[in-house]
Amino acid sequence: MRFGLFVPQGWRHDLVGIDPADQWSTMRDFAAHIDREGSAWESIWVYDHFHTVPKPSPTEATHEAWTLMAAFAASTSRVRLGQMCTCMGYRNPAYLAKAAATVDLVSGGRVEMGIGGGWYEHEWRAYGYGFPGVPDRLGALREGVEIMHQAWTTGSATLDGTYFQVDGAIVQPQPLQQGGIPIWVAGGGEKVTLKIAAEYASYTNFHGSPEEFSHKSEVLRGHTERLGRDFDSIVRSANFNTVIGESEADVARRLDAIEARVAPFLGPEVTARFMADYHAPTALVGTPAQAIAQLADMRERGLGYAIHYFPEAAYDRSGVELFEREVVPALG
């Protein structure tokens, strides 16, 4: 199993209390810690969002994903760099292909392209993108992935589509990576999203219960078989909200600290919703032994890549280090 983790960027209220002038150095230093020689982490990730969750805050930061991609490309040297996931509706795909190719060049060929249809209605409307229905968002996703695939494999893209029209859009220089930047198609929609993944993706990213993961894996297998593609050529990944402690008492202490940090910004009702993510069956919350058992089950179901979000990472790296020290060697 391979491992990545999210850099705190504000979207999930994970930079609260840190002066905006110090937030980049907080993110940069955390990335540098993960980038160090001998680290077990393969990749770092950011979210592509503009407004905080679980409710938009008019004062709290959410740092922009592709600006961070460029910054991390220049400030790290080993780890791969991804977004989970870039929203197709936020940028013209030909422009996105061009920008990503440049970041890939800056990074020395370390970029991953996470892409999806988007869902956060508040920021869609606030930024003037409207909020198309699901069929239109997924239709745009399909066309956008085709444009990026063309751009990275031929150096230009042409498509007279329903949602995007490009005519000989030149993307030079090409990404450094042979065959273009690896595409991660995020989402578990069985009729459209997983079909797009079966055609274009090097990786998928979907979550849910272990049983849901197994079911969607079989749906993906069916799409690949109909296309004549090797199912095992697509690495299946999932994201985990992760809080790891030396003991159950340590886990409880960490959860209490997370709740105390966000409560002044969210209020009691929203804080309860926020913390529910860490009590859900799909969360990875517990001791190293419990985490190993949960991930081992997912590995048996075909999970090849686990990407972890540690809500305390900007303030306390000990959970990340405990995971790296005890969980990764048991599964890596």
Rank of each mutant, 00 (worst) to 15 (best):
T86C: 12
I115P: 02
S156G: 12
Q177D: 00
G168V: 08
P135F: 09
G130M: 00
G180K: 01
H149W: 14
L105N: 14
Y127G: 09
M84T: 09
R80S: 12
I183E: 08
V134M: 15
N92Y: 07
G118Y: 01
Q174H: 13
G117Y: 00
H122I: 12
G179Y: 05
V145C: 01
G128T: 07
G117E: 05
L68R: 03
A186S: 14
W152I: 02
A61S: 15
V103D: 11
V185R: 05
G109D: 05
W184E: 10
M84E: 09
A97N: 06
Q83S: 14
D160N: 11
F131D: 08
V111G: 01
W119A: 04
Q150D: 03
A186H: 06
E121Q: 14
Y120T: 11
C85S: 14
Q165L: 08
C85T: 14
R142P: 08
C85D: 08
T158N: 07
V111D: 07
P175A: 02
M84I: 13
I147G: 01
Y163L: 00
L96F: 10
V103P: 03
Y120W: 13
T102R: 07
A99W: 12
I181A: 04
L96I: 09
A74N: 10
A73K: 12
S107Q: 08
A70M: 10
A101F: 01
T102Y: 13
G109W: 01
M84H: 09
Y129S: 04
V106K: 12
G161T: 04
G128P: 01
V106F: 13
R110Q: 02
V171S: 00
Q83V: 15
V106S: 10
T154M: 10
Q172A: 14
L105M: 12
G89P: 06
L138P: 11
Y120S: 12
G116V: 02
H149F: 09
D104P: 03
A61W: 11
S77W: 06
G130P: 08
T153S: 06
Q150F: 05
T67Y: 10
D160C: 09
D136V: 11
E60Q: 08
